[in-house]
């Protein structure tokens, strides 16, 4: 399957930046990750959950630390389990507690990141894991891309199934509950999806900037769209566009790919802001 992809790229994109196999792998990974980030970002921005998704990144980091501590070569599976549990706990407490959501998320987020750092620095071996902070998209392997493809398909199916309910929950929770929507369940499914994609991507994008990739495309799309369909579509387009442009730019500038993608997203965001009054 990968050979087919490599041949296709050679035919369609006869450019220098995509000559190397690792760049072809990275391009395919971007085509799988960025639409998901654009899609999920729409609800994160609407529900004012940017701080929450940032905390999920911290939870994922702790999960990786736990995975590494129990001796897994690829700690990502332990990290997925941990960050989904972490996301579910915050979601349930947020719904049941009367304390401020920001405070609850802040408490969990701080503890998670501190715990992760303590675990990974045990015995002074933190340098080995510092790549999780800034990520390395160019190191992605074909088997990891296959994992991404499976996750991509599952998330798209789940999204189609829960989208209308999720939309109503984000517009008005009591209205959704009065329609018989199990709002906590819907929120839990959504936060689990975000936790999974954030955790899987963190090794390639990096903890420090992963949240920007979720928030910026949707925030930009929100500036220039008038309905939900446009909003979702434009968020995905901005995410994919920023991903591809960021990858190309990082190749020529020799910079960190994840960070370059975020910078492109940032530029697109400010452009949409400038056009805000014309469109919406």
């Amino acid at each position: 399957m990968m050979n087919l992809w490599y041949s296709l790229v050679n035919i369609v994109l006869p450019f220098q930046w995509v000559e190397f196999t690792f760049m072809k792998n990275a391009l395919l990974a971007i085509l799988l990750i960025t639409p998901l980030f654009g899609l999920l970002g729409t609800m994160i921005v609407n529900n004012k959950m940017a701080f929450f998704s940032d905390a999920l990144g911290h939870g994922a980091f702790t999960g990786i630390a736990i995975g590494a501590l129990i001796g897994l070569v690829k700690p990502v599976l332990a990290a997925i389990v941990f960050s989904v549990v972490f996301a579910l706990i915050i979601t349930v407490i947020k719904n049941k507690s009367r304390a401020s959501t920001d405070t609850i998320i802040g408490v969990f987020s701080s503890i998670a990141i501190a715990f992760g750092l303590v675990l990974l620095s045990l015995g002074g071996s933190f340098n080995k894991y510092s790549s999780y902070l800034i990520g390395d998209l160019l190191s992605i392997t074909p088997s990891e891309i296959l994992l991404l493809l499976v996750v991509f398909i599952i998330i798209v199916i789940l999204w189609v199934l829960i989208f209308n309910k999720l939309l109503l929950v984000s517009i008005n929770q009591s209205l959704a509950r009065s329609r018989g929507v199990k709002t906590l369940l819907v929120e839990m499914i959504f936060t689990s999806i975000v936790a999974v994609i954030v955790t899987i991507s963190i090794q390639w994008v990096g903890l420090l900037i992963i949240n920007s990739l979720l928030v910026l495309p949707a925030a930009g799309a929100r500036n220039i769209t008038t309905n939900v369909r446009q909003y979702t579509l434009v968020a995905i387009i901005i995410a994919v566009f920023s991903g591809i442009c960021g990858l190309i730019a990082s190749y020529y500038l020799n910079t960190a790919t994840g960070a370059t993608i975020v910078l492109v997203s940032g530029i697109v965001f400010f452009l949409t802001l400038a056009f805000k009054n014309k469109f919406a």
Binding site: N164, I171, S174, A176, A221, T225, T226, N227
Partner: peptide, 24 residues
């Protein structure tokens, strides 16, 4: 319901908002 801030600033068309009433 009483309007929420999220609802007032949601990029949804009139048709989409009304259609959400058919969720049940």
């Amino acid at each position: 319901p009483q309007q929420t801030i999220a609802q007032r600033d949601f990029p949804a068309s009139v048709y989409e908002v009304v259609l959400s009433g058919k969720l049940n």
